[in-house]
Amino acid sequence: MNAQRFLALIVAIIISVPLLFPGGHNIGLVNAILIWSIFAIGFDLVFGIAGMLSFGHAAFFGVGAYTLSLLTMRMGWDFLPALGAAGVIGGALALVFSYFAIRVSGLFFALLTLALSQLIYIMAGTKLRMLTGGVDGIAGVPRPDLFGIDFYDDGNYYFFLLALFVLALLISGLIRISPLGQALKAIKSNEVRAEQIGFNVQRLQRSVFTISGIYAGVSGGLLASLIFYVGPQMLHWSTSGDVVIMVLLGGMGSLFGPILGVAIFEIMREWLSMQTSHWYGILGLVFIICTIGMPKGIAGLIIQLWDRIMPGGKS
């Protein structure tokens, strides 16, 4: 067994808790982990693989949530096509963002994506109030209605989410080792050289940003259906901040890292918020310490420890 497989095993255990301990109370938590993981996996394609720090992913996430809610509740669409539309709209918005934001790089890219997403947030709260319900949001977002299964039962919904999670993970894994993923890593490593050997850098960046937007849109739609509600908070920049924390905590640029980050983030949210109302500040401290002390996150730490404990079995 190498370190990567060990990480995969940890992830597998976390997401199969409802199977290992049926009837437990953790099902809601695992469902949330699955959904945020889809978001984080997609975010890491941009952040960890292509090396672009976006502070605007809340926009795609929130817009996906609104898309699914409005299409199912106002337009009478079925759940699955509406979920697909959430992905498409999330991706389309990301594509629009990328046309503006990719012209600048580094810190400016982070600021520009932040500004663009706050613009969407303000619009949803004011100009589009008729559509979005303003600060009240929209309650009563449905879940899928398939094969006569009652997905309003969290235990059943778990399987639906698990299927999508596995699909998202597979696609992301494939992208990473595909020529596309390699090209993106090349851009992150040395943009000048990547462009000089003939990569269309901007187009590749736009592509991955769009793919990541699709992930965000789908996961946003799923979260709305999980909690039966969508509100402007999902569009707020702190949601972008959350996904950045998750990915950095777990380990940017690795396939399983972001999932570990999501799990820890969600478990902390669950447990700490029961112990203290100040869990977000503690999270901030943990985040600062991790940023300084382990830039490759928990996944990086585990791989390092594994290689030390198991000499010879290099991963």
């Binding site: 982070a110 901030g284 985040f287 600062i288 940023t291």
Partner: peptide, 11 residues
């Protein structure tokens, strides 16, 4: 560094 200052906000 940007991420760290983001952490400062939370704290």
């Amino acid at each position: 560094q940007l991420l760290l200052t983001f952490g400062f906000i939370l704290v």
